[in-house]
């Protein structure tokens, strides 16, 4: 278990706001498309395959 599972996001409320603000005027379809792109942007940052597999398992 190498994935960080303790709080690690700087300014959680700010981040949450950035995310919801970004999607405020979107349809569900557009927001879902954006979320899909965001997955790949964040996944590239993580990079490590074991970490990514673990992240998928947690989200599922």
């Amino acid at each position: 278990m190498s994935l960080k599972l303790t709080p690690n996001i700087e300014s959680p409320d700010d981040f949450y706001e950035v995310l919801t603000d970004a999607q405020r005027d979107m349809t569900d379809e557009e927001a879902n498309d954006m979320n899909a792109r965001l997955i790949f942007v964040l996944a590239n940052q993580i990079g490590n395959f074991e970490d990514l597999k673990q992240a998928v398992a947690i989200a599922k």
Binding site: N32, D33, A36, R37, I39, F40, V41
Partner: peptide, 10 residues
């Protein structure tokens, strides 16, 4: 399809 299209558009 959504994931595939996300990859392509990125």
């Amino acid at each position: 399809k959504r994931l595939r299209n996300a990859v392509l558009s990125l």
